[in-house]
């Protein structure tokens, strides 16, 4: 399959990768190890002397009463993001591929549109639109006789709304990628199933889902990893983790400890723990996506 081109070509290969590698080395790998290093110290970014405290930060992490709440919130975010950005796009892609005949291009284009807009702008827009007392959404709801709850101060609901704002941005991208996977399922199979009067939902679960699983898993993982990182912006702009940490997740908490309280060592330790969780996901991604796919080569 892949030809070997002789040893001199190996140097060419290295040369091609070098520029990217260099940048990574300076701005990714070095900071990564430096953060690991920092996690064993007590520091606030200013003091000239860092105090070595061994595993104390990690111990404090596990004893921190805030951690269970933060982790619970993180899980909630992940679940909601998955439903909105993994399940919903899937269904939508299915509908667009096999149920609706016309307007595909238009829908694809229109749904993807918000993805190109800054999330800061999006957060501010939604702050205005979703003002529970005097925003456009509230006024519309009043016509229908509903009172919008004050979501920015309601536990649980605040996570939902912040997830919705994040969804606004990432739905389009996820949808397009899944659409690619779904539309790769051969039309003939679908047509055959329809002729056999197989109900729509069965077609979805038994045919489409398995055949596009590689894409599905990819988006699943990306939604968790990137979704959490994207959510950071609305949390920072709209609630700053409030009310009473109800909207803070592990990423935001790391930011708060590191850049608001300046507990540099503690924040670093928390980063490592978050990183470990992500690595687990990474291993899954590599197993399923890289191995279980079919390429032309």
């Amino acid at each position: 399959m892949k030809k070997k081109f002789g040893n001199k070509d190996v140097w060419i290969a290295y040369g091609l990768i070098l520029p990217a590698l260099l940048v990574f080395a300076i701005f990714m790998f070095y900071p990564f190890f430096y953060t690991v290093y920092l996690s064993f110290f007590d520091w606030n970014m200013i003091k000239p002397v860092k105090e070595f405290i061994g595993l104390a930060n990690y111990k404090a992490l596990f004893a921190d009463p805030l951690m269970p709440l933060v982790i619970k919130n993180t899980v909630e975010y992940i679940l909601i993001l998955l439903v909105l950005n993994c399940v919903a796009p899937y269904v939508l892609a299915f509908v667009l591929s096999f149920v609706i005949k016309r307007g595909r291009g238009f829908y694809k284009g229109a749904f993807f549109l918000p993805s190109v807009i800054s999330l800061v702008v999006g957060s501010i827009l939604y702050l205005w639109v979703l003002n529970p007392v005097s925003g456009p959404a509230a006024i519309l709801a009043e016509f229908l006789g509903i009172n919008i709850p004050i979501w920015s101060k309601t536990q649980g609901l605040v996570i939902v709304v912040l997830s919705i704002i994040t969804t606004w941005k990432i739905f389009g991208y996820n949808f397009i990628v899944i659409f690619g996977g779904v539309s790769g399922v051969p039309q003939e199979i679908i047509e055959a199933a329809k002729i056999d009067n197989v109900p729509l939902y069965k077609i979805f679960f038994d045919i489409v889902l398995p055949m596009s699983s590689a894409t599905g898993v990819y988006i699943f993982i990306m939604t968790i990893v990137q979704g959490l990182q994207y959510v950071f912006t609305p949390v920072k702009v709209v609630t700053q983790g409030g009310p009473d940490n109800a909207s803070s997740n592990i990423i935001y908490n790391i930011y708060q400890e590191g850049f608001v309280f300046y507990h540099t060592g503690y924040a670093s330790a928390m980063s490592i723990v978050a990183m470990v969780l992500f690595i687990v996901l990474l291993v899954i991604e590599f197993r399923y996506v890289e191995k279980g796919i079919y390429y032309e080569n």
Partner: peptide, 18 residues
């Protein structure tokens, strides 16, 4: 009394809702 973020609270007053 309204319990809401500062920005939205002021907005609501200026809107005539508080």
């Amino acid at each position: 009394a309204l319990h809401i973020s500062w920005d939205q609270g002021v907005q609501s007053f200026v809107n005539g809702d508080v």
